[in-house]
Design a protein around this nucleic acid. Sequence first.
DNA 1: AACTATTTGTTCAGCGATTGAATTATTTGC
DNA 2: GCAAATAATTCAATCGCTGAACAAATAGTT
Lengths: 412, 412
Amino acid sequence: MTSTSAPAGAVRQGSLRELNLAVVLGRIAAAERPPSRADLAAETGLTRATVSAVVEDLITGRLVTEAEPAPRAGAGRPARGLVLAGDGPAGLGLEVNVDYLAVCVVDLAGQLRHHTVHRADLRPVSPADALARLVELAGRARADAAAQGLTLAGAALAVPGLVDDAGVVRLAPNLGWRDVPVPAVLAGHPPLTEQVDGVPPLVVDNEANLAALGELHAGPAGPASFLHISGEVGIGAGIVLDGALFRGARGWSGEIGHIPIRPEGRPCRCGGRGCLEQYAGQEAILAAAGLAGADLPADTAATRLAELAGAGAEHALRALDEAGVALGVAVASVVNLLDLDTVVLGGGYAPLTPWLQSPVLAEISRRVLTAAWSPVTVRPATLGADAAVLGAAGSVVRRIIARPAGWLARVG
Amino acid sequence: MTSTSAPAGAVRQGSLRELNLAVVLGRIAAAERPPSRADLAAETGLTRATVSAVVEDLITGRLVTEAEPAPRAGAGRPARGLVLAGDGPAGLGLEVNVDYLAVCVVDLAGQLRHHTVHRADLRPVSPADALARLVELAGRARADAAAQGLTLAGAALAVPGLVDDAGVVRLAPNLGWRDVPVPAVLAGHPPLTEQVDGVPPLVVDNEANLAALGELHAGPAGPASFLHISGEVGIGAGIVLDGALFRGARGWSGEIGHIPIRPEGRPCRCGGRGCLEQYAGQEAILAAAGLAGADLPADTAATRLAELAGAGAEHALRALDEAGVALGVAVASVVNLLDLDTVVLGGGYAPLTPWLQSPVLAEISRRVLTAAWSPVTVRPATLGADAAVLGAAGSVVRRIIARPAGWLARVG
DNA sequence: AACTATTTGTTCAGCGATTGAATTATTTGC
DNA sequence: GCAAATAATTCAATCGCTGAACAAATAGTT
């Protein structure tokens, strides 16, 4: 009999402070209003003495600053509110997509400090050239960040495809990439390849995963577990369980687009038959709405459809309803399996939510046994097409918040 | 912007020892051979001094004993091997199912120390009566455990249905239970209701979940993430991610039986249409094999089918192949979504694996985009019909191994 | 204006747990 | 029989948290 309950690394003397730094910083990040040291002590159960010591470390490490608006007014010495520092580390978000490149910088407090989108059809461009263009944008972003007193603590790149542990893009069908070793291609470009603190300076991840992370951090304070569906040409999903992204055994989770909806239905380019993508993918919806071959840029297709549906165009409405039913069948599978209470429609689906929501909900309530007791919410994403870049940059700063000791050791 | 990266409770001074007790005990439990204190120090990074102190606590708390077979032979003072104690705390496993009651006791080392199965059709029996019979069996198990020098540290009950946080069985269709508040019903029965250490003495959980846990602990040392499918009258699944059971937002994950396979196919008693259960459930297979109405006890149905198929009976073979295809379509959905590398066929499916395996694998390789790079293993469960009870008892002792401080405080 | 109540944040001795080096224990190989 | 090797224990030192006392700063009261 073998246990698999992974016994995490041992807890050394110093880990204590390391863990409490993370706990206190996490509370400051999660708080609605700037908390005082006394508030933090009450919340965490640590003594005020300990919290003061921990906070001092965080302040000298430029992760936290004292904010003006005092958290409390009344008798007694006024409290000093603590907030995440806006002038410390920041995250660099990058994205390569079918028809644009994007770069952004997000500071520790979650504020967007730089944002560039470069529109261009990247399908005819070689991976090396596309990445070279991206590096140029990244260089400008870095300069802009430095001018604002920010230090980039790392970068994350979103791509619309399957990425392995080493950062190799194994397959990005809509981009035409196959086995592109991103870190190796970028090896000659210093701004993205300094090795710091054992953490690779650049993390490459699936667009749908990072968009889900963006939604997690940007969305309403609410649910910690949800399915975020990115409806583009392909359909990807990011699964957030208890506030953490679930990546699967090899990082290839969320391929909702190839869930079989009709086992012997339309053939799919994945080799299967009846995949969701063939019924609720962008091309399928456009074809059903009679807009096939219009060859719209990916992002305008969704808004065009929304306009038509809003104007009451019969064929658009029918196309969206059919897509919603197909999507609902797949979502019902997911909810039956994972018991999630929230489904977020993102990417191209976001503007179409008014028409997709009710068929999706109908299929859920029809097919999910537990839906009667625990209603499922279907809502549009709060971030638009920028979710993936923002999520990429956010993932960098979130990593620092989750483990501040690493950053503090680096700063000294 | 709100963080949801749950900042766990603060780490107090005493948590240090608490955590290291868990780390060291976890290593002892996971080791192939009894490790020495020196081995543990090397593995965990703690000093030998600390490990000695921690181990002493574990030994006086009857969680660990020194084993004879020395872990090493060579020059130098011989090491003393450490193993989980066989005479300390033990877990009581309970199960109510359609046609039997089961009770077992498993010690800390995972050895089965008591096992009773009481066959009876429980559908006509009221929940209160069924539970009363179970309590009687539990009382005998407790006496037997005491006679062997064991102390029961808790109990877990497996039921074939949906259970909420409070231990209420909301719905167990095949048993005919609805909203049965198990803890309240058992309130008058002392052996299962002593409150100890803040932990409720009895945990009620879904049978498929506990069977998956049983398989996790009993199976090969290997995979930490897998899908365990319990094919009975209904089809349930337990999802193990990174060595931990995933329960979903409300504990109702794993309803794989109601994944839609043919969206407008056969009506299901859940109200939906084309659910997997209608194509790969026990009744569906029996009907397709021409054995409908034979009214076999649940456990013999599978062996009967296996006999027929083994003898080459045409109709049985065809029925199993069709069920395998249906199952494969559902499993393909799951693998696309969660990127699991292992699927375990349990319950009634276990003896049928030789015939189910190849159609399931065929559908996976046909429909899962990443299957080409990361092959998926489909294998039978190593535990038979006892998986759920054993998993229930195992979950009790595993909880102690994961957090030994609670037990030690209780022992004094 | 002085005083009290109240709350925040800091200081400091004390303590528990880990650390690292030295010590003791026990066996193999020469 | 002795040296080398490995295991386990002992003990002073250190690190970080605790708890209580103390200083700081404000609102309300007389």
